[in-house]
Structures are given as structure tokens and as C-alpha cells.
Design a protein around this nucleic acid. Structure first.
Lengths: 257, 257
DNA sequence: AGATACAAATGATATGATCTTTGAGTGGAA
DNA sequence: TTCCACTCAAAGATCATATCATTTGTATCT
């Protein structure tokens, strides 16, 4: 069973969001994430009904969803108030997508990368004691394929294998919350790729580290798996550091307290 | 400015959920988390309108929210299908609350504790380089107050100080996503307290470790801060381990793939 | 048997009315 | 003047009903 061929065709973005609800939601979410709707400013329902030329049903449903992710707060006699970024559910995949598409893209990439740095080593550690035999074999196989793709200079394939590798580690951690971070990792890796932050021939070290992680997990050596993953993260972090340094380091993000 | 007196009165749970929307949402969310509505089963809007004796608007808005957190999927000509736990946004605070109130409470506590184990050490590391002078002082002060409360055997106060301590570390990490985990940590600590998992006189070690973390952060020694926090997490993890071992270890949770 | 067309079920959207809450103004009393 | 109680209207919350659009099961036709 090839664990790398069919699954890698994941959904990158859902471009043609059909349905009025999705369209309005996406538009408003983007506007809020992009800062076009500043925190504190107020809207009202009828205004939105006019602006988007949809019914109140649609607008209200959208507002409920936005409220549930902390973007807005509706108050009678006042209207719909935009809430500050500190109130957002920054773990909501939709929010992540919007932020990655907005001006705060770099800040978002940075946050997620730091999160990865924290989580993935522990995930590797846990995976070492929880992974199944077949999964472990797949993992080692993936590392091998990554090596091959790296040698061949096939960036596209390398990216997909990389995503799949980290997905499998998080999955094998047996922690539902870690698993859910897989999509964030995929976004970061893809973003890194799009910004040409990966050397055309991946560092030999990185290839070796992936292999180390896989092997340590298969041998059920959690401590070694963690350390290998730490090294991997350190390298990934360094590679990305140049990104947000060149884009004007947003060292203090939404500390709007 | 006392960082521990006014803030500690956070919202534990919002019991009297006013408004039809909140009531129906809470009821359905609880039912899904509790497994009373099994994955795969289908509802339809009119049925819910009858069951809850509310209007379609209310039901539809609730369903949109549930869909946005991955609980359901609405399909024409079919109805509203309950999705498996693997699709849930397990980072949504509302989901956490529902799960902590359901039969999956232990599994949820376990997941969050593992997440803490991964994140907090790195948060401490980052905090060491990003914390402000005043915050650092507050942190050291908190550790001192924890020591006092531990000595005095004032469990209640100790809990609040503990929550505040970890909140401050996460806040000082400068990572918006880490900050958002603060509420989860608070839930875990409170849960641990409610289940009498904390020794009446907190371990001397734990007190010392909190002090170590605070001091290392203040001295901007990230590596030492991380290591101290790792030890803290290890101890916390051990204390909780007995909990989910006695409750029938749910080692494999929703691996409904 | 297989393709095609029809029809029913169900969510999606639209519309208008009514209820409820709450901010702001208004007036009187201390 | 200052402050409290009262009133009113604005805006969301809820309700009720109707129509549209899509999906899918079924019957019909070849």
C-alpha cells in the first residue's frame, strides 16, 4: 500500500465557494482578517443585506458563524461590533486560511512555525510508543522517498512527501489535537515552498534527520525521535527566520490588551 | 499592581445560557459530544424545529455554527448528518467545554495535558526572550505567592495562582496561538483540582520548579526556563496519569479513520 | 438491462412581521 | 446642578410562510 500517492491530492484551497453563505462568510472573514474592518467598528444587518444583496437569513447565519469564531459580537440597539484579534479562535482552520491570505501572512506563518517547534518533537516522542508496525514502515518508506525526491531535485514531489511525513507523525502520536495540527503544518510547508524558501536540493542534513526520526520511531526510541525532530524543527525555523526578517519582523503581534 | 487578585475571577462556565440560539446550540453540541447523536445519523431541520419548538431561523443558525466546527454536514435531499469526531475542531473552546462535560472528559484532559507538555516548555523558552520587565517581576511574584499559599495549605488560592502563573507564561511567549491555549490550561488545572489530584500540600518540588521557571525567564535564560518547565510538566503528567488509568485508559480515542 | 425523465424530499434563500432588549434622551425631584 | 426613574425608538432575535434549487429515488421508455 502506497501511502504517498493517493492522499497527497489534498484540498489546497476551495476556490469556487458555491452558495451565498460561503461567499459572504468568506468575504467578511477576509475583510476582518485583513483589517479592512477595524476592531471596534460596527455594522448592522440591514446594511450587510444591502451590501451583499442577499437575504437576512444568509446574513444572520454568517454572523452567527463569525460570532462563534470570535470575530464579531452582536448587541441589540448597537449593531454588530468587530472584535479585536485577541478574541479570535486562531486555531480555526478557516481563520488560518484567511490570515494566510491576508497581510498578516507572515505573522501567521511565524506563529504556526513556533507551534510546530513545540508540538512536533513531542508528537514524535509519543508516536514512538504508539505507532503501529505498518505505519512505522510507511514512515521509514516516506523518509526514503524523500531522499530520492531530494536527490532527483523534484521539489513538487518532495513537498508532498514532506507534508505526508509530518502528517503521519502527528497522526501516530495518538493525540487528536496533534492530528488536527496536520493541516496547519501542511499550510506552512506549502507556504514555505511557494516563497522559495526551500533549497532546490534539500539540505542533506534535513534528509538525514527525517530518516533519523522515522527510524527512531520505528525502533520505539521516543527520546531519540524527539531529539531528531527538534533538530529538524530548528533547521526549519532558521530557514523561515529569513522570511519574516525580510518582511519586517512582526515581533509583537496582536497584543491588543 | 497585583496581578493575581482581580483577574482570577474568570468565567468558569456560563450556566444560564440566555437566548434560544445558545440553548439549542448547547443542547445539540452536548448531545453530539456525548455520543447521543452517533456519527452518521441524520437529522432534518423540521424535526429539530419541532423538537426544540423554535423557529427555522434559530435552527438554521445553530446548524451553521455546528457545521463550522465540523460537527455536522448538511446535504440536500438527505438531511443533516452527524460527522465523526475526527472532523471536529477540537481546539474550539466550546468543543472543549462540551467534551469536558461529557463522557469523554478523561480523554480530553489527557489530550490537553499532552499538548501542554509540548507547548509550555517552548512557551517558557520564548518568554525568556520576549517578556517585559514588569511582567517578569509579576511572574516571580506569583511563584512566591504560590509558595506561600502552598505552605498555608490554601488550595483554592493555590489553584488560582497556578492558573495565573501559566497564563502569564503563555502570554509572555508572544505567540498568539500559545496565548489562546491559556483557557485550556485553566480547564485542566481546575479539573485536576476538582478531582483532588493535587496533594493538599503541593509538592515542594513543584513549588521550587515554578520558582525556577520564573527566575530563569526573568534572567532571560531560555534554555533553563524550558528545562524547568519540562520538569514541571513531567510531574503534572505523572500526577494525572493515575486519573486516566483508574478511569479505564482511553488509549485509542476517536481514531475513526 | 440500461438509460432517461419525472417527482418528491430537503436544504437554501427570500420576505415581512412581531417580540425583546437596551442605549439614549427627557423630565422631575433632591 | 445632579441624579434617578421613565419613555421611546433602534437594532438584533425570533417567528411564520413562501419560493427556489439540488439531489436522489423511482418509474418509464427503449
Amino acid at each position: 500500500m502506497e501511502p504517498s500517492s493517493p492522499e497527497v491530492a489534498a484540498a489546497p484551497t476551495l476556490p469556487a465557494e458555491s452558495g451565498l453563505h460561503a461567499r459572504v462568510l468568506d468575504h467578511l472573514g477576509t475583510a476582518i482578517c485583513g483589517g479592512e474592518l477595524a476592531p471596534g467598528s460596527v455594522l448592522n444587518i440591514d446594511e450587510l443585506v444591502d451590501r451583499y444583496a442577499v437575504s437576512r437569513s444568509v446574513v444572520r447565519e454568517v454572523l452567527r458563524v463569525l460570532a462563534s469564531i470570535g470575530f464579531i459580537e452582536a448587541r441589540r440597539r448597537v449593531g454588530v461590533m468587530i472584535r479585536p484579534a485577541s478574541a479570535w479562535n486562531v486555531f480555526d482552520p478557516q481563520v488560518i486560511r484567511w490570515r494566510l491570505a491576508s497581510a498578516g501572512r507572515m505573522a501567521q506563518l511565524r506563529s504556526i512555525t513556533e507551534l510546530r517547534t513545540a508540538v512536533e518533537p513531542h508528537a514524535a516522542y509519543l508516536a514512538a510508543s504508539r505507532i503501529g508496525r505498518d505505519e512505522a514502515s510507511d514512515l521509514v518508506g516516506l523518509a526514503a522517498k524523500m531522499w530520492a525526491a531530494g536527490e532527483a531535485g523534484d521539489e513538487e514531489r518532495f513537498l508532498h512527501l514532506d507534508i505526508e511525513f509530518h502528517r503521519l507523525v502527528l497522526l501516530a502520536s495518538g493525540n487528536e489535537m496533534f492530528v488536527r495540527l496536520q493541516e496547519l503544518v501542511a499550510e506552512v510547508l506549502t507556504g514555505r515552498h511557494k516563497h522559495h524558501l526551500m533549497p532546490h536540493h534539500p539540505h542533506e542534513q534535513a534528509l538525514q534527520m527525517h530518516a533519523d526520526v522515522a527510524q527512531a520511531i520505528q525502533r520505539r526510541d521516543g527520546e531519540r525521535a524527539r531529539q531528531a525532530m527538534v533538530r529538524l524543527m530548528e533547521q526549519a525555523f532558521d530557514e523561515m527566520k529569513s522570511l519574516w526578517e525580510q518582511t519586517g519582523a512582526p515581533d509583537r503581534e496582536a497584543t491588543t490588551r
